[in-house]
């Protein structure tokens, strides 16, 4: 039996005095899976993604990704973990406006110590694969939303991560661009990339994910996705 790529064991994340954002959640995701985390606003989706990405730490429980106890990592180890194992795609792209498309894509590799030449070659390959290579020298501000998200995906894949985490990747896109990104994620999964999507877009979940996990009030919930999203 294949070891899970992601394993959350009774994870709780509590902010201040309020109810926990995540409450004793346990979840296992195998390599090569494409999982959509679904839930309404405030259900704990983004908190879960942050915990898996090592952007935040649980108040209780353990988070293990690719054999790494993410909940135990310090700031520096967490940064190294992200750049080695995680590709992050954000709703609002989070491209750096003062860097060219190519420089944006190269950044994770350069932070990991890759030389400029090698990084340029890898970036060119990814931009070509995602169809945005003509924009390599442009600044993100000149690109359409869909193109920007493609660049963001290229940047996420730069260090060949074991896991691609996408937080509402079509949330800021028009329909056509959203379609474009959905197709891209599907293709990536088809190529063997493990993908975890955080979304409240059922269509995106259905088209890109092989499994869905529903969250409500910080717990894994049962019921249809439609019921839960209501």
């Amino acid at each position: 039996m294949t070891a899970p790529l992601i394993e959350l064991h009774e994870v709780t994340r509590r902010y201040d005095e309020g109810p926990p954002a995540l409450n004793e959640v346990s979840l296992s995701i195998a390599p090569g899976e494409a999982v959509a985390i679904l839930g309404p606003s405030g259900s704990g989706k983004s908190t879960m993604l942050n915990l898996v990405a090592g952007l935040d730490r649980p108040s209780a429980g353990t988070v293990t990704v690719d054999g790494v106890r993410v909940d135990r990592l310090g700031e520096a180890a967490s940064a190294r973990y992200r750049r080695a194992r995680i590709g992050l795609v954000f709703q609002f792209f989070n491209l750096l406006d003062d860097l060219t498309v190519a420089d944006n894509v190269m950044l994770p590799a350069q932070l990991a110590g890759m030389g400029r030449g090698a990084a340029e070659r890898r970036a060119a390959e990814l931009l070509g694969r995602l169809g945005v290579d003509r924009h390599a020298a442009a600044y993100p501000g000149r690109l359409s939303g869909g193109e920007r998200q493609r660049v963001a995906v290229a940047r996420a894949l730069m260090n060949k991560p074991a896991l691609l985490l996408a937080d509402e990747p079509t949330g800021a896109l028009d329909t056509a661009s959203g379609e474009d990104v959905m197709r891209l994620l599907t293709e990536l999964h088809a190529d063997g990339q493990t993908v975890v999507l955080v979304t409240h877009d059922l269509e995106l979940a259905e088209r890109c994910a092989t499994r869905t996990v529903q969250l409500r009030d910080g717990r894994v919930a049962t019921g249809t996705a439609m019921e839960l999203l209501r």
Binding site: E75, A76, A79, R80, R82, R83, L96, P108, L111, A112
Partner: peptide, 16 residues
């Protein structure tokens, strides 16, 4: 600060 968050999300360590 937002760019800083992006950098760190992409793997920039505290020392970097």
């Amino acid at each position: 600060v937002h760019d800083l968050g992006v950098h760190k999300a992409l793997g920039m360590t505290p020392r970097q």
